[in-house]
């Protein structure tokens, strides 16, 4: 057991399992920085997982499939923004509605397209390729972890860097942070908070859809019912615990990815798999507990107790 925990295969699996959570955590961070909790990540991921399969099958290649799926994610983000910002719907209620539509809607759509209600095996879809990086793959241990990942995993790492630069080095990122923290201040210098929040939610939708695409076109190579399995919610926790910064969110995502990878590996043991499948969610709960406890301690310290 310990041996397999220290093997490069396990670390490789961690990166794999982290990828969808990481995309969604980045999605959550940009929305949160703009002052909105995007709880619809779960639904966006689920829709994107299905549309990824459909689009890549329709267009005959994964890349256009990915691009079209990102459009879908952006559209759902826009849809959420419309409800929250124009119609003033409660952001949580609107997100719950989207998530419920996703649960039922994906099954219905899959049935219509493939005639199957459990998985999309009958659809000939295309996954993102695995990439072997020349030279790097020759490095012992490290090379085995870093090289040979799915293209989406590399995109996720790239997305962390891009999102960090975007949030902290560009005017739009500055505006997003300003709107999220003090809307009045932003408005007082002529920033349209609504426009900024629209942009943030659409971007959030696009990022989440990339995580969803990876679920059915990389992590697995088909869509199955409810395959996002709470990763959207886990990502919300990861983002919050990482202070809603791209770097922080990705580090915590790595922790949750490790929990997922651990659960995956332990399915080969004799422990009942129901218990093992709890690991990612338990980790989230414990993580949030530790995070909140340390926050409380910090507050008490400030109060001088």
């Amino acid at each position: 057991m310990l041996e397999s925990l220290l093997s490069p295969e396990f670390f490789n699996a961690i990166l794999r399992a982290t990828t969808p959570i990481l995309f969604a955590a980045l999605a959550s961070s940009v929305a949160s920085k703009a002052g909105i909790t995007n709880m619809a990540l779960e639904g966006i991921m689920l829709f994107s997982a299905l549309f990824g399969v459909i689009f890549s099958a329709m267009t005959g290649n994964f890349f256009t499939g990915l691009l079209l799926t990102m459009v879908i994610g952006g559209l759902i983000g826009w849809f959420l923004a419309f409800f929250v910002l124009n119609l003033k719907t409660d952001e949580i209620l609107a997100a719950v509605a989207i998530n419920l539509i996703a649960t039922g809607g994906t099954v219905l759509l899959m049935l219509a397209v493939s005639g199957d209600r459990g998985s999309s095996t009958s659809i000939a879809s295309f996954s993102a390729p695995r990439i072997v990086i020349p030279l790097i793959d020759k490095i012992p241990f490290l090379g085995e972890i870093i090289s040979g990942q799915n293209l989406m995993t590399y995109l996720a790492i790239l997305a962390v860097i891009i999102m960090h630069l975007f949030m902290y080095k560009t005017p739009l990122g500055l505006k997003i942070r300003a709107v999220g923290e003090n809307k009045n201040a932003a408005e007082s210098v002529g920033i349209s908070s609504r426009k900024i929040q629209y942009i943030a939610l659409i971007l959030s939708g696009v990022l989440a859809s990339m995580g969803g695409f990876f679920m059915s076109g990389g992590y697995m190579n088909m869509f199955t019912k409810d395959m996002s399995a709470g990763r959207g919610y886990i990502a919300l926790a990861a983002s919050a615990m990482g202070g809603n910064t791209p770097i922080g969110a990705s580090l915590v995502s790595l922790l949750f990815g490790a929990a997922q990878a651990l659960a995956n590996m332990m399915q080969l043991t004799d422990i009942p798999h129901e218990l093992i499948q709890m690991i990612p969610y338990l980790t989230t709960l414990i993580g949030l507990g530790v995070y909140s406890y340390s926050n409380m301690k910090r507050r008490q310290k400030l109060a001088g107790k």
Partner: peptide
């Protein structure tokens, strides 16, 4: 005050009228 606490003084001053370099970055 209409200020954003987590931003620096300079960032608050230029907010909304940011000087740019290379077209994309502040």
């Amino acid at each position: 005050f209409m200020l954003v606490p987590s931003l620096t003084v300079a960032e608050n001053i230029i907010l909304g009228v940011e000087p740019k370099k290379k077209g994309v970055f502040i």
